[in-house]
């Protein structure tokens, strides 16, 4: 067992422990809300998933710009890892919102601007991942991905502001002024832990893709060496 493997295992254990603790804290400290009762507790997974997804796409945005400026493959691979985690978190946000919407709004889904723009965000980054899978040449893949990653991120502020700019079924953003104390800390703690989970997943995925690239490089090197020895 290599030391990095042990460290990874420890980090994974800590992340899981934090995740469990944050959710227990949230559920245990929240009384049934005046209007929606215990359904309020869905807030502690839906909202953090959305915030973490926004941040992940923020990483894609920054790394895509850095790639176009510096042309370092590591930036491209980090952007790709963040995009994949962002897609999973956005999908989770949509599914959790749907589960929350059915008992509170009365519908699983409606095409209001918040929901529609979030669905668009999801589709764009699924497209980003699809694009990567069908372009083999690494430089070209990185350039095109960076372009889509930057354009795709522009949708994040649109999603965020949609509840202010347009009429929606989705409520506007809450703030500590609109949320009573018992719920504020549950949300904050779960948000922080979700962001830690996001960072952890991106890091692991990034490590894996760096290693895969190194393997590819070594294979090429070896192929060249064997070819050379035959001539």
């Amino acid at each position: 067992m290599t030391p990095s493997n042990d460290a990874g295992r420890l980090a994974g254990g800590v992340v899981v422990a934090l995740f469990v603790a944050a959710q227990l804290f949230g559920v245990a400290t929240s009384p049934a809300e005046a209007g929606m009762g215990h359904l309020q507790k869905i807030m502690y997974v839906h909202v953090p998933a959305a915030w973490a997804a926004f941040l992940a796409f923020g990483i894609v945005f920054i790394m895509s710009i850095l790639y176009l400026v510096r042309r370092r493959e590591s930036h491209d691979l980090l952007a790709a890892s963040a995009a994949q985690v962002g897609v999973v978190l956005t999908g989770l946000t949509l599914a959790l919102g749907s589960i929350w919407g059915r008992p509170t709004w009365g519908v699983w889904w409606t095409w209001d601007p918040r929901l529609t723009s979030t669905a668009v965000l999801f589709v764009i980054f699924v497209g980003y991942l699809a694009l990567r899978s069908f372009v083999d040449e690494p430089q070209q893949r990185a350039r095109w991905s960076a372009a889509v990653g930057i354009l795709g991120f522009l949708n994040v502020p649109i999603v965020y502001m949609s509840v202010r700019w347009w009429r929606t079924l989705h409520q506007p953003s809450s703030s500590p002024a609109t949320v009573d104390d018992p719920y504020v800390w549950g949300l904050r703690i779960n948000a922080v832990v979700f962001i830690i989970v996001m960072a952890y997943l991106i890091r692991r995925l990034y490590q894996a893709s760096i290693l895969q690239r190194k393997v590819e490089a070594l294979e090429e090197e070896r192929a060249l060496a064997t070819e050379g020895s035959h001539v």
Binding site: A32, L39, I42, V45, V88
Partner: peptide, 19 residues
């Protein structure tokens, strides 16, 4: 309310766990 809450947390664990 609880079935919806449980479904949400279960889905979160399944999605993030599998991933």
């Amino acid at each position: 309310d609880w079935p919806w809450v449980i479904a949400s947390y279960a889905l979160t664990w399944i999605v993030l766990g599998v991933y």
